[in-house]
Write a protein that binds this DNA or RNA. Structure first.
Length: 568
RNA sequence: CGGGAUGUAGCGCAGUAUGGUUAGCGCACCAAGCUGGGGGCUUGGGGGUCGCUGGUUCGAGUCCAGUCAUCCCGACCA
């Protein structure tokens, strides 16, 4: 491409609405242009990057034996009613009627559509397993689109679905997809982590997220400093505690604790480690039908992880409860304890099961119990992991320590089982001629989000720094002075040779000054800019490596060979 | 959906408090010339329903009401 003819509208100033580096630079460098909230046009450079990512995904999917399809973007609402998700997805589903008044939705994800495609077409175990995917525009009417391509309403996603006769076979495919996704991200040149994730209300036995590590990531991850373990904070686990504080000596007793409501105060009042105090967190659990107050108990040194709490009580959501509501249930905020507490549902963190020497609220204003042995709790008490992992906690798989980092979720794979196939009646006949629902897996990857993720991870104060695999053009031939015939001649010759060699090359043949072109090259972020300028008089051109931010002199006669060598 | 802010040329902004010539500035754009290694200079140009609707007024970018849009914080996010 000749830059003099290219549509690459770069801008000196960032749009005032942009906050994230990816949003700022992709806009300034002429990759994307916003149309409305959460809607973006991709300009030529943006489209080229998208295609590169798509190509890599397609190659890895082909290698993994998945087949590409393309499902219609507009999907009949009946399918969503059939699966029951039309309510669940709520306002994120953009609905509309056609001229015959039939209701449709713009697909936010395509489980229903894919199951619908396969059911009644695949009806024998002999036709399984099957892995179908597409790379397609999706639409989710997000309550709050933001961060440019990172959280847009319309976006491009690779979504794959696999169909199996058994959970064992699903496990095999799940692992294969994890490996394939890993290769995709490695090829893109990204620093990432595959982490354990919350499966959400959908359930399923396994769920992993692919996280590109970047400070601007919206997810908090707990990662091990020694091994590969990583998990979304919502699902993170830790090893058994090794250092248990010395236990306070006290017989069971009721103690006056005037005004001592917080764990911190309680600890200093009794001079005990918060480990031996019992924290009570009351929430209102919202169910599909009805709601109730649930009190979660955990050690004072731990904090409640809300997603784990939601899963533990099977609620759709947890909301805060007012002190008045608690009082109405006979609960005394600041003094809530588990003993003889039968007016509300309670759930205990597994770590307090059978704990002794505990201090807990007495369900009476200004009183706590000391020397409590929680083995007195009824057999039927519910225990679950409720704690949130903290930095410094032990890794659950090795001797390492966990620390927090931020990640951008660019992929999510999980084992669906029969969650969709059963309600949608998608079945096959097994070896015994008996009908069974497909066992399914689903594998998503945010393709347009990956464009932003690359820049979040690879940029500096001057602009984008594309990786070799994602760059819109790998090599930029910059003619310093377009009036210099010698410079033009060399550039033209290199341009032709590189094109013939199949290299993605662009030539800056604009009638602009050196500085302008240099700034532009840095902003757009071509991995290699070959500066053909005044040094050519001495037989020298310069290689500007964007990622390394270095300039290297190269004899002009060796330019082509050295470019090919640089590409590798 | 709660809280906050902003809409003036393609982009970034001033002007609005206290209504009053022809609505300004920088960048970008067009023309000519100079310049040619870090977004260069000079001269001359083009480009505006001041988000929209209604109201107050002799007169509204400016005041009032409504409305739409966009962004930020939070809630939400298979």
């Amino acid at each position: 491409m000749r830059m003099s003819q290219a549509f690459i509208p770069t801008e000196k100033e960032a749009p005032k609405d942009a906050v994230l580096p990816s949003h700022i630079y992709l806009t300034r460098a002429g990759f994307i242009a916003q149309v409305a909230s959460g809607l973006y046009n991709l300009m030529p450079l943006g489209k080229r990057v998208l295609k590169k990512i798509e190509t890599i995904i397609n190659e890895e999917m082909a290698r993994a034996g998945a087949q590409e399809v393309e499902l219609s973007f507009v999907t009949p609402a009946e399918l969503w009613e059939e699966s029951g998700r039309i309510e669940k997805f709520g306002k994120e589903l953009l609905r509309f009627r056609d001229r015959k008044e039939n209701l449709f939705v713009l697909g936010p994800t395509h489980e229903e559509m894919m199951v619908n495609l396969v059911r009644n077409r695949v009806n024998s175990y002999k036709q399984l397993p099957l892995n179908l995917y597409q790379i397609k525009t999706k639409f989710r009417d997000e309550a709050r689109p933001r961060f440019g391509l990172m959280r847009a309403r319309e976006f491009v996603m690779k979504d794959g679905y696999s169909f199996h006769t058994s959970y064992e076979d699903l496990d095999r495919e799940f692992d294969a997809m994890e490996a394939a996704y890993k290769r995709v991200l490695e090829r893109l040149g990204l620093d990432f982590r595959i982490v354990e994730a919350d499966s959400g209300a959908i359930g399923g036995s396994g769920s992993k997220e692919l996280m590109v590590l970047a400070d601007s990531g919206e997810d908090t991850l707990a990662v091990c400093d020694r091994c590969e373990y990583g998990a979304n904070i919502e699902a993170a686990r830790r090893s058994e505690r090794r250092e248990i504080p010395e236990a306070p000596e006290a017989d069971f007793n009721k103690f006056a604790t005037p005004g001592i409501k917080s764990i911190e105060d309680l600890g200093s009042f009794f001079h005990v480690d918060p480990y031996y105090t019992l924290k009570a967190v009351a929430k209102r659990a919202i169910y599909e039908e009805g709601d109730e107050v649930v009190v979660f108990f955990l050690r004072g040194c731990d904090d409640l992880q809300e997603v784990k709490a939601v899963n533990a009580c099977g609620a759709l959501d947890l909301v805060d409860v007012s002190e008045e509501e608690l009082s109405a249930l006979g609960l005394v905020p600041g003094f809530i304890g588990p003993l003889d507490l039968d007016t509300v549902r309670t759930i205990f963190d597994a770590d307090v099961k059978g704990a002794a020497n505990m201090i807990c609220g007495a369900n009476e204003t200004d009183y706590h119990f000391v020397g409590v042995d929680l083995s007195v709790l009824p057999e039927a008490a519910q225990y679950a992991a409720l704690y949130e992992v903290k930095e410094g906690d032990g890794c659950p798989v090795c001797d390492g320590k966990l620390s927090y980092t931020k990640g951008i979720e660019v992929g999510h794979i999980f084992k669906l089982g029969t969650v969709y196939s059963a309600p949608l009646g998608a079945q096959f006949l097994n070896e015994n001629g008996k009908a069974e629902p497909f066992v399914m897996g689903t594998y998503g990857m945010g393709v347009s989000r990956l464009i932003a993720a690359v820049i979040e991870q690879h940029h500096d104060e001057k602009g984008c720094v594309w990786t070799k695999a994602t760059a819109p053009y790998l090599v930029n031939l910059m003619i310093s002075n377009i009036k210099d015939e010698e410079q033009v001649a060399l550039a033209e010759s290199l341009y032709a040779s590189l094109q013939a060699a199949g290299v993605d090359v662009i030539m800056d043949d604009r009638k602009e000054r050196f500085g302008f072109k240099a700034k532009d090259a840095e902003l757009v972020g071509y991995p290699l800019t070959v500066i053909i300028g005044k040094e050519l008089a001495n037989g020298i051109v310069q290689f500007f490596d964007r990622a390394e931010d270095t300039k290297t002199d190269v004899p002009s006669s060796e330019a082509f060979a050295r470019i090919m060598e640089w590409i590798g």
